[in-house]
Amino acid sequence: MGDKRKPSNAVWILGIIFLFLIFIPPFAPRFFTYILGLIFVTSLVAMSLNLVVGFGGMFQFHHGVFYGVSAYATALVLTKTSLATWIGFMAGPIVATLTGLIIGWFCVRLTRLYFGMLQISLGSLLWAIVFRWYSFTGGDDGIHGIRMPSLLMSLNNSYYFILAIFILSLLLMYKILKSPFGNTLQAIRDNPQRCEAVGINVRRYQLLGILIATFFAGVAGVLFVILERSVFADLLFWVLSLEILIMCLLGGWFTFFGPILGTAIIISLRTFVGKYTEYWTLILGIILILVIFFLPEGVMGYVQEVLKPKMKEVKQEEKGIDASSGIGF
């Protein structure tokens, strides 16, 4: 990790973006603030997915389930019980992590495509239950008009709350990825057999990675409820999961900030192109195919390559040395 000791440029850019985001709500129209909030929430899901897909190398095909389960847990606590709001907010991530524990425990027994397909069938099971259990979850109508504490009533306040949690989660995820645990996860992605041989319990690390990812997906689920004040069964449908996966791949799944870019691209396409034509998915499909053909590393991967050609070379040299010394060890 060559850029760890000289973070000045990146930190400046991020700081400016952050200040910009803070000053947006009073000046921008409500709709714009709402879209920004939606981008934060969705990119938090995408980044949590990228922890296991891009950095963990697992085929987490049904990540939307954890997001949806958390949103439903929060919504149910807030509408069906008279418990305090913060308990509802806590319930989301906890339920999501527990679901992640159960589904992940089964999934880590399999590999690659089989892993993904088992997760899709387990997730679809949950979706079918939520979709059909009218008396409890509201079925395909969902739950609407969830009450919020007075502090989060206005859109601007929820925006700031979402932004704060979003940044906090990003910092946490960054720390996790830079920790020994994160490095082990990436090592498992690159070569599971060798990790097994070195004495790493691959399945346990993968399960832990899934738990962390599902926790952050749970956080995003709560933020979704705060922003939308409603939940619906489509949150758990596999099409949404695939869309989230595509946000990661589009933005660049080996980069940390890639998923944010991918999410921003897809959501703004949907809102701004969707205004002019109902065929926006056609345009999305064409853009995706162009990206696959010409930018296989994703948009962010390409930007990094263009911006820092020298850094990249140095990095690769370092990597080469690392790899050769790694074999000896």
């Binding site: 897909v53 085929f59 695939l242 996966l245 595509i246 791949l249 589009l250 998915t281 056609l282 999305l284 499909g285 064409i286 995706l288 195919i289 696959i292 296989p296």
Partner: peptide
């Protein structure tokens, strides 16, 4: 993973 993304975009189109 890339093929899944690609065939999904074809299905969108």
């Amino acid at each position: 993973l890339m093929l899944i993304l690609f065939t999904f975009s074809v299905s969108l189109i």
